[in-house]
């Protein structure tokens, strides 16, 4: 369960988050939707203790991320496809993460197979395509078999097969009772993946609803909600 309350964050004179509050519940894929610069990535980075909030709190199962011991067992995150050291192999990248959180090394092989990277496990990440690096990011997120998954634009760089694969994977993970929070600015893709949407604009929550309850398409709903902000 992810709970965000009254989150504010300012960079210089730019207010990135302005009292943002939302919940993401277990068992559903929650879409965190907004235009570029809406504050999605900032909120996710605060949730993962990479950025400091000016005020408010972001909790995962009732705790701040930096209060969780061996957090990869609880939370898996995909933030930046370029986060892995380019000179390290995919296997060693995951082995380092596994070692830091006392995760059995057999999980490295498991998630590499699960994400379709078994054949390139011992190749250096610097030679990977963007799609392969996205898959490696997802492999890292799945490493600790976490109950909460946080993904920032995970389909960027993936081909059609990869997008379909990630969609079915995330839906299967949510069906197992996990909390899945997925940010995206691609409405058509989000409509096929998420069960519940949070629409964010100018650092605030503009709307939230179940996709099943929408009277029209997610894209229309999104444009209506964000258009209200622009007006």
């Amino acid at each position: 369960m992810i709970s965000v309350r009254d989150l504010t964050k300012t960079y210089g004179s730019t207010r990135a988050l302005d009292g943002l509050s939302f919940d993401a519940r277990p068992g559903v894929v929650t879409g965190f939707l907004g235009a570029n610069g809406a504050g999605k990535s900032t909120a996710l980075r605060i949730l993962l203790a990479l950025h400091h909030a000016d005020s408010g709190e972001a909790l995962i199962d009732g705790r701040r991320y930096d209060q969780i011991d061996r957090p990869l067992h609880t939370v898996g995150a995909v933030l930046d496809a370029g986060a892995a050291h380019p000179g390290r192999t995919a296997f060693h990248h995951l082995a380092c993460l596994a070692r830091s959180n006392r995760i059995d090394r057999s999980r490295v092989t498991t998630v590499l197979s699960q994400t379709g990277l078994a054949d390139v496990a011992h190749k250096r990440v610097g030679g990977f395509s963007l799609g392969m690096r996205q898959r490696l990011g997802l492999a890292a997120a799945l490493l600790g078999d976490p109950s909460v998954l946080v993904l920032d634009e995970p389909v960027n760089g993936l081909d059609a097969a990869g997008i379909r694969w990630i969609r079915s994977t995330l839906r299967a993970l949510a069906a197992e009772g996990r909390t899945v929070l997925l940010s995206s600015h691609l409405m058509s893709e989000a409509a096929l993946t998420v069960d519940h949407v949070l629409i964010i604009g100018e650092g605030r929550l503009l709307a939230e609803t179940s996709v099943a309850a929408l009277p029209r398409s997610l894209e229309d709903f999104y444009l209506t909600m964000t258009g209200e902000v622009a007006a």
Binding site: L48, L50, Y65, A84
Partner: peptide, 9 residues
Amino acid sequence: PDPGLLAVP
């Protein structure tokens, strides 16, 4: 690029 804070916050 990532000093390892996701694994060790």
